[in-house]
């Protein structure tokens, strides 16, 4: 990645030669050793690799939740400044959705909160927000769900769909999903894959880590393997979609 290609489609996410060290049991170890990755708008890039290989660390770096020791992370061509608040441009989704949702908030508030970010000119009223939440839930087959329910009253699959609705509602440029289907039933997981494919078709760039190889293969434009802290791109498999 030494040359910079000025192409029409500038990557939404550009990760260059990133190194991350974590304190280990006996000595400091390099979790990521010079990882580079580019994701363009509408692309879904899958990250695969054995447990403990650093997938989650890489995803935290992509989501700008963790600063690398060395290397650059750019979102939309801009270097990520220290303490950047992401402003809804980069949204992470975790495996454990229940833990990601605020337990005190009714789900309408969780789902629509990103619409209140500073750069939004038309901020919806509370009445509108509840209506938007209802409409969003209907789209993912959760019409029966009370918009005033708290996360504690929801099943794991329902929580994950709520978390994804929240992540997508403000049309982020980049979605970073760490094992979004690992805890879900097959049918619910299939629904989540559709949500992600649909988001990509609207131009959102997606990075997804999963140990479900088949899911990555049917969903992703590209799959890369993380091994020993380095990323190896698999041949383009878009033809399979």
């Amino acid at each position: 990645m030494s040359t910079t290609v000025a192409s029409a489609a500038q990557p939404v996410l550009a990760v260059d030669e990133v190194w991350v060290r974590h304190p280990g049991e006996r000595r400091v170890s390099d979790v990521l050793r010079g990882v580079s990755l580019r994701v363009r708008a509408g692309e879904i890039v899958g990250i695969q690799g054995p447990s403990g290989c650093g997938k989650s660390t890489l995803l935290r770096v992509c989501a700008t939740l963790e600063r690398p020791a060395r290397g650059r992370v750019r979102i939309g061509g801009h270097e990520v400044p220290r303490g950047w608040r992401r402003d809804g441009q980069v949204m992470p989704i975790n495996q454990n959705a229940t833990g990601a949702l605020d337990p005190r908030w009714p789900i309408w508030r969780t789902i629509t909160e990103p619409l209140l970010a500073r750069h939004h000119t038309h901020r919806p009223t509370t009445v509108q927000r509840r209506e938007i939440a209802r409409e969003q839930l209907r789209q993912v087959g959760l019409d029966g769900l009370d918009v005033d329910a708290r996360p504690g009253q929801l099943s794991g699959g329902q929580c994950q769909r709520v978390a994804i609705l929240r992540a997508l509602i403000a049309k982020p440029r980049l979605l970073v999903a760490d094992e979004p289907t690992a805890a879900l039933d097959v049918s619910v997981a299939a629904g989540v894959l559709h949500l992600l494919a649909n988001a990509a078709s609207q131009g959102i760039a997606i990075v997804i880590a999963s140990h479900d190889r088949a899911a990555l293969r049917v969903l992703c434009t590209r799959v890369a393997h993380l091994r020993d802290g380095t990323l190896v791109e698999e041949a383009e498999i878009g033809a399979n979609r």
Binding site: G141, V186, S187, V188, A189, A190, G191, L193, H194, A197, D212, R213, A214, A215, R217, V218, L219, N240, R241
Partner: peptide, 14 residues
């Protein structure tokens, strides 16, 4: 509803 390589996106149950 189970993802299988080459089978396209899995179909959720209604």
């Amino acid at each position: 509803a189970t993802p299988r390589p080459g089978a396209g996106l899995p179909v959720p149950l209604p």
